[in-house]
Nucleic acid binder design. Structure first.
Lengths: 187, 187
DNA sequence: GTCTATAGGATGATAGAC
DNA sequence: GTCTATCATCCTATAGAC
């Protein structure tokens, strides 16, 4: 799991895996049919871990629904800082690297993304937004923004692009909630 | 260039390259010191090509500065459709894949991103936005959004996430230009 | 379930003739 | 500048003893 995150799938060799797991190939192939099967298991594990690792800590860190979204993003900022902005979202990295023919992997990748968007949708549904707001679109935007921001921060080896994206999201959501507050006064 | 886009750097072997270039290894190593040197040359070529391939067509397709930004994004939508949403931005893909120690590669990746943001900044500077608008932040957001949107469309094998991101950007920029129009009336 | 040993092929890169 | 031939190493995966 760690190696696919750090080096990607193709650049991680079986001997890398064996060394890190401190076992021999016989043990590996006793549990996994192939290197690709390990990838599937890793992606499945990410999906399983999502609530505990991503959603719950962010939901515990804030009670305001909009701030919970920013708490999720703050988690990624923390991970960027911890790695000197070299790594990023492991799912995003694999989403761009894995062979499109690997349908099983992509099913798990989309499962992860869907869970992520679902958590944000939950927050948005509880937020004071205009009733016309397209919440699935907006949740998709937040994921899009996180992934693009992490990528750009890796490219520049700086949190600044990430922070810029968060600032802009804050401005946009601020305008939306302001519009929701104005609407009742008008109508 | 094509193979790094299609398969990534690690998954592209020298024999893949030789087959596609229809030459032998002797010829390859006459021009390039290593596979990594080819990567650097490819990234440099992308930077060289940016104006002709990305900026100029979009600027020619629209005269309104905001619509020029959406014309850039429409170019990526077209590329997604042409590849059944399997590929994406080649720079973005390499930004997540390439070893962070490969500083030369990352210098070229950031050069590409900076050129991209520069084109968007040019558009934003000509657009009717509130004078307080942070144009570099906003240009960075557009790149962030494009990269994240392409990634998510690849993950779901659908243009829908890309379109959702564009819709949201349009809404945000619409609110900003509306605010700029209101401001003179108030002040 | 873990070990050693190894198959069978691909890998990036080089040497040197032409 | 392109060719053939090849090096040395690494790769994923398997076989079979224990």
């Amino acid at each position: 799991m760690y190696l696919f995150w750090e080096k990607g799938f193709a650049a991680t060799s079986l001997s890398d895996i064996l060394e890190r797991a401190r076992c021999r190939s016989g043990s590996f192939y006793h549990f996994f049919e192939s290197k690709e099967a390990l990838l599937h298991a890793v992606l499945e594990l990410y999906a399983t871990m999502f609530d505990v690792v991503i959603a719950q800590p962010a939901f515990a860190a804030a009670s305001d629904p909009i701030e919970r979204i920013f708490a999720i993003l703050a988690g990624y900022r923390e991970r960027l800082l911890q790695t000197n902005c070299t790594y990023g979202c492991p799912i995003g990295r694999l989403a761009l690297e894995v062979d499109p023919n690997n349908t099983t992997a992509f099913q798990w990748i989309s499962t992860n993304f869907t869970a992520w968007r679902g958590a944000v949708e939950t927050c948005l549904a509880a937020a004071p937004l205009p009733p016309t707001t397209n919440i699935p679109d907006l949740a998709s935007l937040v994921l899009t923004l996180m992934e693009g921001a992490v990528m750009q921060s890796r490219a520049y080896r700086s949190v600044e692009p990430f922070d810029a994206a968060v600032r802009q999201l804050r401005a946009y959501l601020g305008m939306l909630t302001a519009a929701a507050e104005d609407a009742p006064k008008r109508g």
